[in-house]
């Protein structure tokens, strides 16, 4: 152990090759994957690329002996439901792992229930347990604003927040915390917990998807399930998106996934009822426009 340390010290590094570091870290793969697998979300991608280059440069500076504090990596993702916050968080964990900022790169997803206890003295052990599980990786707190309930002054959420803040500050090298939630509620949450806002360096907004992007997402989802659209069903899907978007409880990509799941259900039913004799794979994986148009959305109802 000691010898190793001495060797490292005696080895004088005078220059670094950022391109080489970039290749070696495998970050390029993740960024490329991010670009390809996530449709839209341009501002998010830009921010992640910026963060990645900052971290890479920081590592290089460290090699040259330019001392800098280990950066605060805690993040806040705000955006409407179904805009890809969890998906990006998972990629983020992998990215930070490749860059060497977290040791294990696993993602622990929790909500209020997992952190806040039901009675006095229950919260602290529960929160600590979760934090310990997330060490070496990324802790993703979904709908983080539920932690703080100003209407109930005896709420234990405050206790969880305090422990969280303490660990976020003291164990900065051990874990990265990502908070996620709707924009307006998160803003209110940060207003009432100024300690949180200042401890989080990166606030990233997830925009809603455009109709076109949603259609692309639908196609990718269908393809990943080994189904396919034809021209008519694609048109039907585009119309579905247009109508569904105006209805309440629209959850972006999640609504699309649900719509596709229901279309598969109808497709299965149709195939089953109409099939006589042997059928091929193409017939089994074809989603017709009728499968989509049967949705309640087209007759003025709501798909949940």
């Amino acid at each position: 152990m000691e010898n190793e340390g001495q060797e490292k010290e005696s080895e004088i590094v005078t220059e670094v090759n950022l391109k080489e570091d970039f290749q070696a870290s495998g970050v390029a793969d993740i960024l490329a994957e991010l670009d390809n697998s996530l449709i839209g979300l341009t501002p998010v991608k830009t921010r992640i690329k910026e963060t990645a280059s900052l971290l890479l440069v920081d590592k290089a500076r460290e090699k040259l002996g330019l001392v800098n504090e280990s950066p605060t990596l805690h993040m806040s993702f705000s955006g409407n439901p179904g805009t890809g916050k969890t998906t990006v968080a998972l990629k983020m964990a992998n990215l930070l792992f490749r860059l060497g900022y977290v040791r294990k790169g696993h993602l622990v997803t929790v909500t209020r229930d997992d952190l806040v206890g039901q009675y006095i003295g229950h919260t602290a052990p529960k929160t600590k347990e979760v934090l310990k599980k997330a060490m070496g990786g990324v802790l993703f707190i979904d709908e983080a604003y539920y932690l703080y309930r100003p209407e109930n002054e005896r709420d234990y959420g405050q206790e969880a927040i305090e422990i969280l803040l303490q660990v976020m500050e003291n164990n900065r090298d051990d874990l990265v915390v990502i908070l996620a939630g709707y924009k307006d509620k998160m803003d209110k949450f940060f207003e009432s917990n100024p300690g949180f806002r200042s401890r989080i360096a990166h606030h990233i907004d997830f925009p809603d998807y455009s109709n076109n992007e949603l259609l692309q997402i639908a196609e990718v989802m269908v393809a990943s399930m080994n189904y396919q659209f034809n021209e008519e069903s694609k048109k039907a899907m585009a119309e579905y998106i247009k109508i569904r978007k105006k209805q309440p409880h629209f959850a972006n990509a999640r609504s699309i996934r649900n719509a596709i799941d229901r279309a598969r259900l109808r497709q299965a039913n149709r195939v089953f009822n109409n099939s006589e004799g042997p059928i091929g794979a193409s017939f089994l994986s074809q989603i017709e426009d009728i499968d989509i148009r049967q949705s309640r959305v087209f007759s003025g109802g709501i798909d949940k």
Binding site: R103, L131, K132, M135, G136, G137, D174
Partner: peptide
């Protein structure tokens, strides 16, 4: 006993 902590930081913390 810490059964499900993938990283040793949790143990050092405790």
């Amino acid at each position: 006993p810490m059964f499900d902590n993938p990283d040793a930081a949790a143990v050092v913390y405790e």
